[in-house]
Design a protein around this nucleic acid. Structure first.
Length: 305
DNA sequence: GTTGCCAACACCAGTTTCAA
DNA sequence: TTGAAACTGGTGTTGGCAAC
């Protein structure tokens, strides 16, 4: 072990222990006490306030206020960092830098818990609504987008919009967001000269340009107009489990023969694909307009073949 | 430049001794 | 019985020298 590595390790040990003797340090790093004294001297020269306690039960310690102020995290904070990294890994995939941070935190935890390695309390099997194969592709795209985001670089994308039209666009990425199980990128589009959302799965090809862009303050994100009305839906009882994925206890009413859902929303158009997911297992009770749209859609479907 | 070995010394806390 | 002094062992501190 090189001197610099040993010095760094001693600093970590001092941060994690109230008191540690030269004999312990010498034994741990397989050097003599004299060498440890020289290392301590180097650490002090670097500005670390080390206190030595002579006599029986003596040893070295770092000034408590320095430890608390600068370097240590509480047990809960360390666990939160591990959990956050696990969430990031689940959503974006693994990065070398991330593994290094996890290793450092885990080593600190292991040292202070006599070898009891900590682990994250979260895990992700498939965090989005897409098939695992699509998710792998999406994570690769997100990694590229993430690099562009960090470096303020423009992206060229081949994009298929919801009408099936294929366009090539130059965008300035501002924000990645996970919405209803799908990834979107909020970007300035040079072609449209406006901010747009792009669904990542619909980006068929993307590459980072060398050119950077100057960030501007994006306009407030577009919100749906507040014009809510009561939507009353009737489902089969056997779909109750699925319904709890979408609605709260207050919105669901279970009867002997069916399940009624009542929500206030202004999403008549967006709710249609959701209704079709239940096939003939759902009926629109109100409003009449949505009932009509639902019926028309079912008729269209029946003419598919 | 780094490390190991040795010696001498200081400091501290616990234990033992001994006079009052 | 008590309290002060001496003793003991563990630890930090420093300097010098030699080997790699």
């Amino acid at each position: 072990m090189k001197k610099i590595e040993r010095i760094l390790a001693i600093i970590v040990l001092l941060l994690d222990h109230d008191l540690i003797s030269t004999a312990q340090l010498a034994d741990r790093f397989k050097v003599t006490k004299r060498t440890i004294f020289r290392d301590i001297e180097t650490i002090e020269l670097a500005g670390f306030p080390i206190i030595s306690h002579p006599g029986r039960n003596g040893g070295f310690a770092l000034m408590n206020s320095f430890k608390l102020r600068t370097y240590t995290y509480s047990t809960t904070e360390k666990q939160d960092i591990l959990n956050a990294l696990e969430v990031k890994e689940g959503l974006f995939g693994t990065f070398d830098q991330q593994n290094m941070i996890k290793e450092k935190i885990t080593l600190l935890q292991a040292d202070s818990n006599q070898g009891n390695h900590w682990r994250s309390h979260f895990s992700f099997d498939s965090p989005t609504m897409h098939r695992p194969e699509i998710e792998v592709q999406t994570k690769e795209k997100i990694n590229t987008i993430n690099r562009a985001l960090q470096q303020n670089k423009k992206l060229v994308i081949d994009y298929i919009d919801n009408k099936g039209e294929w366009t090539e666009r130059v965008i300035h990425p501002y924000e990645l967001m996970l919405l209803n199980g799908s990834w979107y990128i909020y970007s300035y589009c040079e072609e449209r000269e406006a901010f747009r959302y792009f669904k990542v799965t619909r980006i068929r090809c993307l590459r980072i340009q060398e050119a950077t862009f100057t960030s501007i303050t994006p306009p407030n994100k577009r919100r749906l107009e507040v014009n809510e009305e009561l939507i009353h839906l009737r489902f089969r009882k056997k779909d109750l489990g699925k319904l709890y994925d979408y609605y709260t206890e207050n919105e669901i009413e279970v009867t002997d023969s069916h399940v009624d859902v009542r929500i206030y929303a202004n999403q008549q158009k967006t709710i249609l694909p959701f209704l079709l997911m239940f096939g003939n297992g759902v009926k629109v009770i109100a409003p009449a307009e949505l009932q009509e749209i639902h019926q028309q859609e079912i008729v269209k479907l029946s003419k598919t073949y």
